[in-house]
């Protein structure tokens, strides 16, 4: 312990001290912001593969609808579990305003999806099969995009805000164009971008750690 104390007494220049402060602040923000590989990337892969499967069903009938939905739902459950695990690891270490904010933000997702399920269950019997799929997809993605952007605003993380905005833009375009295009846009545009952003952030984090 004393040996380490002696190491700490090694005089640093003001530049080195300032760099030390900045590096430590950046490390703290990165670590407590959650591992991007456990937050953005699982959802990116889920949408890439899940909506990709739906697109193959809508456009080419290569997969049955039930198989495509099974792929999507199974990956969604896996992503939810991963995100929950990642957030829990962080929130178990901090208490106070930040933890309260995280808990309320987490609950907001549940409230949003409860509304999605309620309206979709009510309207689905009235719509043709493909439009039912579009209804579920667009309303779900509306919640995801709004809460992603809101999360970016809450924690002042620009990437998260812009990912939410990007998702909203794709969702609007897909809603207008129809179920096939919507599935393609969410698969490639959202899934691909979220996966890439997660991996790039993770690589930067490893490089900067």
């Amino acid at each position: 312990m004393n040996r380490l104390d002696d190491d700490d007494d090694r005089p640093l220049s003001p530049e080195e001290m300032l760099r030390l402060i900045e590096e430590q602040q950046a490390t703290t923000v990165r670590r407590l912001g959650g591992d991007p590989l456990l937050t953005h990337t699982p959802w990116g892969i889920t949408w890439l593969a899940g909506f990709g499967a739906l697109y193959l069903n809508y456009a080419y009938d290569l997969l049955s609808r039930s198989t495509a939905l099974a792929v999507l739902f199974a990956l969604m459950v896996l992503s939810m579990a991963t995100t929950f695990f990642a957030q829990r690891t962080v929130s178990s270490q901090v208490r106070g305003e930040a933890a309260d904010r995280g808990m309320m933000y987490g609950l907001s997702w549940m409230f949003g999806f409860a509304c999605v399920v309620a309206i979709c269950v009510r309207l689905s019997p009235l719509l043709p099969s493909e439009e039912t799929g579009l209804l579920w997809s667009v309303t779900s993605m509306a919640i995801v995009s709004a809460l992603y952007a809101a999360g970016g605003a809450l924690w002042r993380v620009r990437t998260m805000f812009f990912l939410g905005a990007w998702l909203a833009a794709l969702n609007v375009a897909g809603a207008i164009a129809g179920p096939t295009v919507h599935a393609l846009l969410i698969s490639v545009g959202a899934g691909g971008v979220f996966t890439a952003v997660g991996v790039v952030q993770w690589m930067r984090r490893r490089g900067g750690a």
């Binding site: 030390l20 402060i21 430590q24 602040q25 703290t28 930040a98």
Partner: peptide, 13 residues
């Protein structure tokens, strides 16, 4: 520096 980054009214284990 780490504790300051957590912000006021926050504690870490």
């Amino acid at each position: 520096a780490t504790l300051n980054t957590l912000g006021e009214a926050n504690q870490i284990t």
